[in-house]
Every structure is written in C-alpha cells, then in structure tokens.
Design a protein around this nucleic acid. Structure first.
Length: 463
RNA sequence: UCCCGGGUAGCUCAGUCGGCAGAGCGAGUGGCUGUUAACCACCAGGUCGCAGGUUCGAAUCCUGCCCCGGGAGCCA
C-alpha cells in the first residue's frame, strides 16, 4: 500500500507504525557517526518532525545535499522516539530531494537572526520559527474575526479600494492615476486636467471603508468590512504602516454604549479563539518574545474593560504625580504618554475612553447634548496604545451639515453621505480596528512590520 | 517630518589617543553509534554604508548624502 501523504501536524496525530510521506523544508541536520537527524518543517505547526536517517539509508553524496533550507519529501515509518523532546519520529526509508539550498549562500541560519535582518529577506523569513508562528496566528485571527461577526449576523461587505472621494478625513492619500506623469494634460487655466484620467476625476487608495459601510448599515443593519487600507503619511514608527488591514463594523440602531460593548466582546471573543486554537504558537511568543502575553490575554479575555470619559481621563492625568512632556489640558488630544499611563499604569488593562471634545474629532461623530463633546470612543491597550477608534455617527441632517461646514469641508462632496440622513436616517455607530495592531497585542511582537507578510512603509515596498 | 542612536566578515558585534582589521556564531573540512540552536578540532572569509575633506597616515576626525533602529507627531 502506498504510504499516506500527510503534513507534519497530521503526522503527530497518527498511530505508531504508520507508513507516511511528509514533504517540507529542512530546518537543520545533525550527524553522528552512523546516524543523522533531519528537522523537517512544513509550516503546518510550530514543531518540526524529526526524521531519523539510519546508517546506510542514504549515500554520503545524497546526505550532503540535505542542508538547512532544502526541500525534501521523506517516506518512512512513525516510531516512538527514545528521546524526550518529541513523542514520535520518522524512521526514514526513502527520500526525494525537490530543491537544494546552497549553505554558502542560503540566508537563513540555524541560529537566530535579528528582525531587522529578516525584514531584508522577507521571502525567506517565513521559513523560520517566529514568522511561522506569526502567520499561523494571523490566519487564525482572521478566521476568528469573520466567525465573530458571522455568528452575530453581520453582513460582510467589500468596500472599494479605489475611491473618488478625497474627503474621508483620515489622513493623506495615495493618488491612483494612469496619466503620463512626464506629460500631464492641462486645462486652459494650466492646472492638471483630471477629466482625462482613467476615472475622469482624481482618485485615491482608500483610507477607510467607514462611509461606505454606513450606506450598507442603513440597509442591512449590522455590517463589517475587513480589508486593506492605505495612508500616505510619512509615519516612521513601530506602530504604523502605509498599507494595513482594518476591520470596520458599522451598526444601525447602536448607540455609543452598544458600540463600546461590541468592541469589548470582539476583542475578548477573538482573543479567546486564538488562546484555544494557537496554544503552541502562543507559548513560543510567551517564551521568546514577551513573557507577559499569556497572562495578559487570559486576563483580557475574562475581565471587563475600564470605561471612562475623556473629561475623567484628563482629571486622572492631572492628579497623576508625574512630569508630563505635555501637561494634560481639557481640549487637547491625549498624547501617547497619556494613553500609555491610563492603560498601563492607572488601570493596567484595556480602557475605553469616550466623549472627546468636538474640536479634536471628526465631523461625522455625533454631537452630545452639552454641545462641546462628541460620542467618540478609543480603546487603549497596554504596549500598543490605540487599537480601536470609533464613534456614534451624527444621524441628524441639520447637525451634520453644520459640522461639515464648520470643518471647512465642501458639502457637495458629501451629497450621498447627507442623503443617508435625508432618507430613513437612524442612529448608528461603528469602529475601526487595526488588524496588525491587534496582532502586535496578541503576539507581543514589538514592530508592526513583523506581523504583516510584506510591510509597506515610507521608502520601502520591496517584495 | 522632527529629536536621539547606529551602519566594520554571511549574521551579531568589539575596535583604546589617528598608526598592521578582531571575536563569537554561521559556512567549509575532518572527527564522533541517538542528536535536539548537538558536540570536538581545523580552516577560509573584509568596498570598515556612499562621496568628498583634513593628515605623513583615517574604521577612528570634519562635511554632505543614503540606509536601519528608538522616541515624538499623524493615526488604526
């Protein structure tokens, strides 16, 4: 009977004595006199499979090519391992070499590398322990996100990546054009004639699907987006990317309190999912990346978040005995040092801050009865800072129009957004969550460039 | 974009006062009858980020640029 072709993950679940074929990449080879050991990893789980090459099973020449990085297929029998580090190992019968990896030039060594170096070899770093764990976890978390919303009857919508509105107000945008930049068409007035561009008008990569999600929320009730967004900000920090993935739920008939409750349940539920499904990878992060992640995740998954208003936050910060670089003053936005203090020291857990001054928040956030705060909320978590930003949206036509005008925006650009308030308006709320920031929070990874497959940052779009 | 710190062997780094370019790891070679980031021995390996300048002489001092990291701002 032909041996079953299985993954390393499956191999560990099969009974002793099963004949199998496993294919993957060599992590390392250790030779002793008469016996060799191959660590074979195929990405299916963190742990590799130890392949035992008995004396004489392979020629000296064949063994010579089984180096770190080589791709092989191995057929053999699962046997109990005499050593304690693994329950089973594969006793080799035959081996096929798919692709060699010249050890003189192969950039991944058996020993550890710095993340900075690994970023320069993003096509190879995925074959290592850390990035294996990162991307298996990223996959599980993406699944958990969809599961969370689908179980609650949210409609998944795909908002456009190319947008004609330059008014989403969430930051600088990348222009999308097919015009010949060496020879731009001009109007009689000498300005660029965008009517000759592909879409007949200026277009950009989206910075948020929120406004489009509101359209769908006011027809389907509860919706969410999960897709790439783009910011052309010259941000050089471990927390920012020019291209990142954002999750944006939008719910009709939700007020700010419902919104905050959903945000908390979302984080708790998805974290519970990865705790239940990614134990092996999380243990690696706990041991090698940040030895607080497991306790933190358990704690977050079970205990309620702190909720305070912006005004209360300012009072707490002003009472704190500490030298602020920027002393907290009502009316100014919370600085990074303030946010960190609140979540890392004052409460030591996720904090939801609500009701910010209208002047420092976006025009679409619902104005409170006091007239000077809006129904905004930020969810702050230790280490990462702001992980969620959201609000109850302004559903009153007159108030929204006034806010657009006082923000210096062109109301004609928002004609369809205003229409949502002219026809069948309803209270509604939503938030945006940075998927990579959540990845950082869960894994303990310190740089956002190491939790996305191919990071885009100012000056860097390799791979 | 601003403020710091850095760029030396494949990787991680040391390099004193301006005076012959170093270590560990990795790779290679050899050894070892069961290894676990195996171990032991030997050996090779350099555009000192780039371009100028000062000097008898520059990895080292000066100027400009590029790249990387940390902090800040912008935000998710």
């Amino acid at each position: 009977m032909e041996p079953r072709v299985v993954s390393v993950k499956q191999a560990y679940e099969l009974p002793i004595g099963t004949r199998i074929t496993v294919r993957g990449w060599v992590r390392s080879r250790r030779d002793s006199k008469g016996v060799s050991f191959i660590e074979l990893n195929d990405g299916s789980r963190f742990k590799s499979l130890q392949v035992v090459v008995p004396a004489g099973a392979l020629t000296e020449e064949a063994l010579h090519h089984i180096t770190t990085g080589a791709c092989i297929s191995v057929t053999g029998t699962l046997v109990e391992s005499p050593a304690p580090k693994q329950p089973v190992e594969l006793q080799l019968e035959s081996l096929h070499l798919y692709g060699t990896a010249d050890s003189e030039t192969y950039p991944m060594q058996k020993k550890g590398h710095s993340f900075e170096y690994l970023r320069e070899i993003a096509h190879m770093r995925v074959r290592g322990n850390t990035f294996g764990a990162v991307f298996r976890l990223r996959n599980a978390l993406a699944h958990a996100v969809h599961q969370f919303f689908q179980e609650r009857d949210f409609l998944y919508i795909q908002t456009p990546i190319i947008t004609g509105s330059d008014c989403e107000g969430a930051g600088a945008m990348f222009r999308v054009t097919t015009l010949d930049l060496e020879n731009l068409p001009r109007t009689p007035q000498g300005t660029i004639d965008w009517s000759q561009d592909f879409f007949g008008k200026p277009t950009y990569l989206t910075v948020s699907g929120q406004l489009e999600a509101e359209i769908f929320a006011l027809a389907f009730g509860k919706v969410y987006t999960f897709g790439p967004t783009f910011r052309a900000e010259n941000s050089n920090t471990p927390r920012h990317l020019a291209e990142f993935w954002m999750i944006e739920p939008e719910m009709a008939f939700y007020e700010l309190e419902d919104n905050a409750q959903l945000a908390q349940e979302f984080l708790q539920s998805t974290i519970r999912y990865v705790l239940d499904h990614c134990q092996e990878d999380l243990e690696f992060f706990h041991q090698r990346i940040d030895n607080t992640v497991l306790e933190t995740l358990e704690h977050v998954a079970t205990s309620p978040f702190e909720r305070i208003t912006y005004t209360e936050a300012i009072q707490i910060l002003q009472k704190a005995e500490r030298d602020w670089e920027f002393p907290p003053v009502w009316g100014n936005d919370l600085q990074t040092e303030h946010e960190r203090y609140l979540t890392e020291e004052a409460f030591k857990k996720p904090v939801i801050v609500t009701d910010y001054p209208r002047e420092i928040k976006a025009f679409y956030m619902r104005l409170n009865e006091d007239g000077h705060t809006v129904r905004a909320m930020d969810v702050l978590v230790p280490r990462v800072g702001e992980i969620i930003g959201g609000s109850q949206r302004e559903e009153r036509y007159d108030v929204l129009l006034e806010r657009i005008r006082e923000s210096g925006l062109n109301e004609q650009d928002y004609w369809w957004y205003l229409d949502l308030r002219r026809y069948g308006s309803a209270p509604h709320s939503g938030f945006g969550l940075g998927f990579e920031r959540m990845m950082m929070y869960i894994t303990g990874m310190k740089n956002i460039r190491d939790v996305i497959p191919f990071p885009r940052t100012p000056g860097n779009a390799d791979f």
